[in-house]
């Protein structure tokens, strides 16, 4: 279908944005990469009065490191994530996640800020943000605030964004020698939304003991689903085939997947168990892997 009629405004600074939002009223929406938003217009699922184009706001761009925080500007595109040296070094999960998102032409436009704001339950980046313990930086005319990613996602396509508020950046704690990060998913075809996916971030001490674990699933619930029970079973123990099995067993209590076109809850739980083993096995020391 053709897009509905709407207004368009382009802004080049946050100040301009606040004025434009004020002028356009509550039915206006922010346009970043547009790779999901513009598709929903073609479904006539949304009908914003005005789209306010923020893609030229310099303050929302760029990737930098300050201390132990990697700051990723909201307009950073998936293609940038995939090839940025700082991302590869300090948040390898994101570098690994980016190529899983759709296809090159989409990755050339889609942005991390847009993906987080949409809170699509099947999307990779919200799950990564939660798994990495990221902080979402939000701005409004009244000022800036920071929300932990785990609090930011509030359910199906729902994020903790106040009206008139936008994401300016994502801050990720930089990976250290003790960090173990990966993302795995099952998709019918390359680039599809996942039937089930797992963003896994562990911290392991020198003795191989898991000091913290965040297993975050996507494509199997109403959002980025933190498997709290499974994560807890890992914490404080050495990673082994037995602890992985215990984490798998704990998933049943963590996940309550809905049915979608690919299958029902039982299949989703099963795939979550498979992904858990596949993700965590990669973190085992080689001798354990062979076993």
């Amino acid at each position: 279908m053709k897009w509905p009629a709407m207004g368009y405004a382009r802004v080049e600074s946050l100040d301009e944005l606040w004025r434009a939002l004020d002028a356009a009223g509550p039915e206006a929406q922010i346009l970043a990469g547009g790779q999901s938003l513009l598709a929903t217009l073609a479904f006539r699922l949304s009908a914003p009065s005005t789209l306010i184009d923020i893609t030229r706001i310099a303050a929302l761009k760029g990737v930098s490191v300050a201390g132990d925080v990697l700051r990723i500007g909201a307009l950073t595109r998936h293609a940038d994530l995939a090839r940025d040296a700082l991302v590869a070094r300090h948040a390898p999960m994101l570098a690994k996640a980016a190529p899983l998102i759709a296809h090159p032409a989409i990755r050339n436009r889609g942005t991390i800020g847009g993906s987080l704001a949409l809170a699509d339950p099947a999307a990779e980046l919200p799950a990564c943000a939660v798994a990495l313990g990221a902080t979402v930086v939000l701005a409004a005319p009244t000022g800036e605030r920071r929300v932990a990613a785990s609090d930011f996602f509030q359910g199906l396509f729902t994020a903790a964004l106040e009206p008139g508020e936008i994401i300016t950046a994502v801050e990720v704690p930089v990976a250290t020698a003790s960090s173990r990060q990966t993302i795995v998913e099952v998709t019918r075809r390359s680039g599809d939304y996942a039937m089930a996916g797992l963003a896994a971030a562990l911290e392991m001490d020198g003795a191989g003991i898991v000091t913290s674990a965040r297993l975050v699933f996507f494509g199997i619930g109403s959002g980025a689903e933190v498997a709290r029970g499974a994560s807890a079973t890992l914490t404080g123990k050495a990673l082994s085939a037995e602890t992985i099995a215990a984490a798998q067993a704990a998933l049943d209590g963590d996940l309550d997947p809905p049915t979608d076109l690919h299958g029902g809850p039982e299949m989703k739980r099963h795939l979550a168990r498979v992904l858990t083993r596949r993700a965590l096995t990669a973190f085992l020391v080689p001798s354990e892997q062979a076993a």
Partner: peptide
């Protein structure tokens, strides 16, 4: 390369 159908002409 981009998807032409996912880019606003106005932008």
């Amino acid at each position: 390369p981009v998807r032409g159908c996912l880019v606003m002409a106005a932008s």
